[in-house]
Computed example of a mutant assay.
Amino acid sequence: MNELLQNMVANIKILFLDFDGVLHPLNCEKENLFCKIHYLERALEGASSKIVITSNWRLTYSTQKMRELLPRSIGELVIGATEVINEINHKRFIEIENYLSTHINSSSIDWRAIDDSPQDFPTDCKNLICCNPISGMGSEEQIQIAKWLKN
């Protein structure tokens, strides 16, 4: 990541985004993919934030392709995707820490993860906004993200 982008990212908030169980219910039909994304769009309205994708979709699609699959208002906020780390405990949390240390070089970055897999994070992780995988993101998670972005 170039120095300009590093400086820009260091001064904003980063949302680490999962897709399945968040932007749509887990195991939903293809026609319902991203059916919950309007909650994320509302939460991010007018905020200075960036998105890093943690979804397993990153195993199949390039970051650019994932940007294109998302609505423009969300896709243009995507700055990258985490690398897969083969850990047994707290897998997503470790992937996020690795991304921050590798790409941002700032331990003081303000971040949140929205995910449906709490087992992939430490039990006391204050940065996790957890969704119900059966329903996906809703107004409660939208409010949590919006409050975080306003602080």
Results as ranks from 00 to 15, higher is better:
R92A: 12
L70N: 03
Y39F: 14
A81E: 14
S48I: 01
I96C: 12
L44T: 06
H90I: 04
T54M: 12
V78L: 04
I85Q: 11
L70Q: 08
I74W: 02
S55D: 10
L40T: 07
E41M: 09
Y39Q: 06
R72F: 13
N105C: 12
E41Y: 04
G46M: 03
E45P: 03
A81L: 10
N86V: 03
T63H: 05
P71S: 10
Y99L: 13
I88M: 11
L59V: 05
S101A: 06
H38Y: 13
N56P: 07
K36T: 06
A81Y: 02
R72H: 11
E45R: 03
E76P: 07
A47F: 01
N105A: 10
E45T: 04
I74Y: 07
L69A: 10
G46Y: 07
S62E: 10
H90A: 01
R72G: 01
S101F: 06
S106I: 06
G46T: 09
A43G: 12
T102I: 01
T63K: 14
Y39P: 02
I79V: 12
L59M: 09
W57A: 14
I94N: 11
S49I: 07
V52H: 06
T54V: 05
I79L: 00
Y61S: 06
E83L: 12
R92T: 10
Y39G: 03
K50D: 01
N56R: 09
I104T: 09
L100N: 04
I94Y: 07
N86T: 07
I94L: 08
S55I: 13
K50Q: 04
I51F: 02
V52P: 01
N89G: 13
I85G: 05
R42Q: 02
L70W: 05
L69V: 03
V84K: 15
E87K: 07
S49N: 05
I96Q: 02
K36A: 00
V84D: 13
S73Q: 14
H38S: 14
N86E: 06
I51D: 00
E83H: 05
T82A: 03
S62V: 07
Y61P: 04
S73A: 15
Y61W: 15
L100V: 09
V52M: 03
W57S: 15
K65D: 10
R58H: 08
H103R: 15
S101E: 08
G75K: 06
I51C: 02
E41L: 14
K91Q: 11
K36M: 11
I96H: 00
Y39V: 00
M66K: 05
T60C: 13
R67G: 12
S48F: 08
I104Q: 03
S49K: 00
K36L: 03
S62C: 12
I88Y: 12
E45A: 04
I79S: 00
I51P: 06
R92E: 06
K65T: 15
K50T: 01
L70A: 09
E76I: 11
S106K: 10
Q64K: 15
S55L: 11
N105L: 14
S49A: 07
A81W: 10
H103F: 14
E95W: 08
P71V: 08
G80P: 10
I51H: 08
L40N: 01
I37P: 06
S101Q: 08
L70V: 10
V84S: 15
E68D: 10
S49T: 05
Y61M: 14
L69N: 14
